[in-house]
Design a protein around this nucleic acid. Structure first.
Length: 551
RNA sequence: CGGGGCGUAGCUCAGUUUGGCUAGAGCGCUGCGUUUGGGACGCAGAGGCCGGAGGUUCAAAUCCUCUCGCCCCGACCA
């Protein structure tokens, strides 16, 4: 793999061979799961993206250009629009459903910041599948099939994976799961209970409300709230330092704009608000941070001095995190520039109930939180696959409807399923390697076995190696012959570096006794095997390795 | 887009602070010879618009301005 520019790479022979093997496995499992392979355009009309609103949703990550006719074209990052448009034109009856279409193709995302080589590149190969069902039960069945196919794909690629609950986005309530490869260099945070019964992306991980109300009751004795002068001290850290308190004692008052009006969210000073959670608490309306003008108008103070007291009547919703509701008292903004208040008591100084007040889980999980009473731990992973029940978002907007048994018009119920082909290779490399290089599973290694003739100039060595190579090839084994005129050490190091699972060494010394050496990449020492049995032994070893990946 | 860093031989980098000899090293590459079971050795060589443009100066890889590219951190993410 060689870099051309930031986030764009040329794959050379070895990398490409691995990618092809991964694609083949994916293809076989998709076909077996009843999906049909198609090929959709990489360049797509912008109008389609405007119809579904994703031009805005994708924002800057969407790559596009204007052609000579002045038309705008999207460089496809996914293909929901195109496939839904296709189905809208082709499907008119429930008898044509269910339908499951997939493609394995280059995608483009204009990433804010491509990083970690193939893990997050601008161009990448993705298998994307889209299913269309007539009923929710049908979608469930398709989803299950795809889920099972994904498990087989990652197992066959020799990867240890975990499945986590993921944020399901706009269509609340329907399922979404990510397949993650646990690994230090991963970009995603996985949250799971110690027994592994619950695992989720940090975006999604649900947190138990605190159990003890003891602290709350202690709050009854707190004196009335009091304003303090905090000139030019806006941030949490600055206020803590100024007032000699801790972030855990602070209440962050975050003002959000939604299509239904202004929403104020409260989280503890040491917690991070999770907008996706607010969104689902509010029933799916888009949520974003309010701009300065909105905040100043609402609070009458500059940004950084907002507080919940007296605001509940002025906003559409007041959303309070469980952890804030459980606080005895806290420090927050005074709704007055350069002032904060202390001794603010939840329930006394601002409401914890009422028609526009919601107490819920609206923050990211942190160390020490629990789920279902079990402690949550954190680890990193690489997202290699995502299965997602989409519902009717796209089929409604793009008019993919069919007539059901009663003759009624219904939108198709969709699911979508992605696999990052490059990421599978990248995670296999990250997951297993040593100081000598890669250790690749036989199913995705560029070659299964490498034959190394040590003394190329010796005719008998050369001919023994050649005939082994030819025999292995003839028997359908993926074999590489290193016939370079190089020193032995160079060949050994290279074979190790590129992760070839099995290595056969043909040397003058061994050949005198009719022996060659066979060594797995993971073996300490090589085994001597009679030349006549070598091909059979190699095939047995490969057979075992492949067997292990089917289990 | 914000913050930081780096652009000198194919690669990794020194030299830049304090302007001054013919711009260097290791690895790689070419030729010849000796070697040959875990990245050999000797000898001889090739290889540079010091990222680009402009400026200061007797003199610029070195100082100034602008620009382009790359890396790292952050913000974003169906």
């Amino acid at each position: 793999m060689r870099k051309l520019a930031s986030g764009t790479y040329t794959y050379l022979l070895l990398g490409l061979r691995s990618l092809r093997k991964i694609m083949q496995i994916v293809r076989e499992e998709m076909d077996a799961a009843g999906a049909q392979e198609i090929d959709m355009p990489f360049v797509q009309p912008m109008e389609l993206w405007e119809q579904t609103g994703r031009r805005t949703d994708y924002g800057e990550t969407l790559g596009w250009f204007t052609d000579r006719h002045g038309r705008q074209n999207v460089l496809a990052p996914t293909a929901e629009e195109v496939v839904t448009n296709l189905v809208a034109n082709e499907v008119s009856s429930y008898k044509q459903l269910p339908l499951n279409l997939y493609q394995i193709k280059m995608k483009y995302r204009d990433e804010y910041r491509p990083r970690f080589g193939a893990l997050r590149s601008r161009e990448f190969i993705m298998k994307d599948a889209y299913s269309f069902d007539a009923t929710p039960e049908g979608l469930d069945a398709t989803y299950e099939k795809m889920y099972a196919a994904y498990c087989r794909i990652f197992t066959r690629c020799g990867l240890r994976y975990v499945v986590v609950e993921a944020q399901s986005g706009e269509i609340g309530g329907s399922g979404s799961q990510e397949f993650m490869i646990p690994c230090e260099s991963g970009e995603d945070i996985i949250v799971h209970t110690e027994d592994g019964a619950y695992a989720a992306n940090i975006e999604k991980a649900e947190v138990d409300p605190p159990k003890n109300s003891a602290e709350r009751q202690a709050g009854d004795a707190v004196p009335a709230m009091e304003e303090v002068y905090t000139p030019n001290v806006g941030s949490i850290e600055a206020v803590c330092e100024f007032l000699g308190t801790k972030p855990q004692k602070m209440i962050k008052t975050l003002i959000h704009a939604t299509e239904n009006g202004v929403v104020v969210a409260l989280v503890r000073g040491d917690h991070e608000v999770n907008e996706a959670k607010i969104k689902s608490v509010l029933g799916g309306a888009a949520v974003e941070m309010a701009d300065e003008a909105t905040i100043e108008k609402l609070t009458g103070a500059k940004v950084g001095f907002a507080g919940p007291q007296g605001l509940s009547d002025k906003v559409a919703k007041l959303v309070i995190d469980y952890a804030v509701a459980a606080m005895a008292c806290g420090v927050t903004g005074a709704n007055k520039t350069d002032y904060h208040v202390k001794n603010l008591v939840p329930g006394r100084d601002f409401p914890l109930e009422g028609k526009n007040v919601i107490v819920a889980d609206i923050r990211n999980a942190v160390e020490g939180d629990t789920h279902g009473g079990k402690k949550l731990t954190f680890s990193r992973g690489i997202e290699v696959g995502h299965v997602f029940k989409l519902g009717t978002k796209y089929s409604e907007k793009l008019d993919a409807k069919f007539l059901d048994e009663q003759g009624g018009q219904k939108p198709c119920i969709m699911g979508c399923y992605g696999i990052g082909i490059n990421r599978i290779l990248a995670s296999a490399i990250e997951a297993d390697n040593d100081e000598n290089g890669l250790i690749l599973p036989v199913s995705i290694a560029p070659f299964e076995v490498e034959v190394i003739p040590l003394n190329n100039d010796k005719a008998e060595v050369r001919s023994a190696a050649d005939s082994m190579y030819n025999e292995l090839r003839a028997s359908g084994t993926d074999v590489l012959l290193d016939d370079r005129d190089a020193r032995p050490g160079v060949k050994f190091k290279d074979a190790d570096l590129i992760g070839i699972p099995v290595r056969v060494v043909v040397g003058e010394r061994g050949l005198k006794e009719g022996l060659v050496e066979i060594k797995r990449r993971t073996d300490e020492k090589a085994a001597n095997v009679p030349l006549s049995e070598a091909v059979g032994t190699v095939r047995d070893i490969l057979g075992e390795m492949k067997q292990a990946l089917e289990a």
